[in-house]
């Protein structure tokens, strides 16, 4: 059971790379912003249907939440546009590793300073080491390509 779940999550991660792999060439053909719309337009319709049928009922309204907690979509556009522009130029692998470096680095900062309403947790040594190794991996792939 647990193994099956892990395999599902691995497949989910593969899906993310396939998504990135589709976006790059699509962006070259129809324009980066149109490619981005293909993700958010179709995604909005899919998640609307899922929400309509499967969301728990009687959850609090969006309007009862602080405005800044609703900005996820704005940040998402930045990410997908960047994905579309960079993937064809540096390759999917290097793009994914750079994204990973950004994620780990940023979440270190968010945790360390307690930004965005997160409980403050001083930088932990293990994630610091992880970030260093991710940077080495980036350098190796970039060096191999040049």
């Amino acid at each position: 059971m647990k193994l099956l779940l892990i395999l599902m999550v691995i497949a989910g991660g593969m899906g993310l790379s396939v998504e990135a792999g589709l976006l790059g060439p699509l962006g070259v053909a129809v324009g980066d912003l149109w490619a981005t719309l293909s993700i958010f337009g179709v995604g909005a319709i899919l998640t609307f249907l899922l929400m309509l049928f499967f969301s728990p009922r009687e959850t609090p309204s969006f309007f009862q939440q602080p405005g800044w907690t609703l900005t996820g979509g704005i940040l998402g556009v930045g990410y997908v546009v960047i994905l579309t522009i960079t993937a064809p130029k540096i390759g999917i692998a290097m793009m994914m590793i750079s994204v990973l470096a950004g994620q780990v680095g940023k979440s270190l900062l968010i945790d360390h300073f307690g930004w965005l309403g997160v409980e403050r947790r001083p930088v932990n040594k293990q994630r610091m080491i992880a970030l260093v190794f991710i940077c080495i991996a980036l350098a190796l792939i970039a060096g191999g390509q040049a």
Binding site: Y79, M94, L100
Partner: peptide, 12 residues
């Protein structure tokens, strides 16, 4: 640019 994308993703 991709690293910035990753930062955006973790804020999101």
């Amino acid at each position: 640019l991709a690293v910035i994308g990753g930062c955006l993703l973790s804020i999101q």
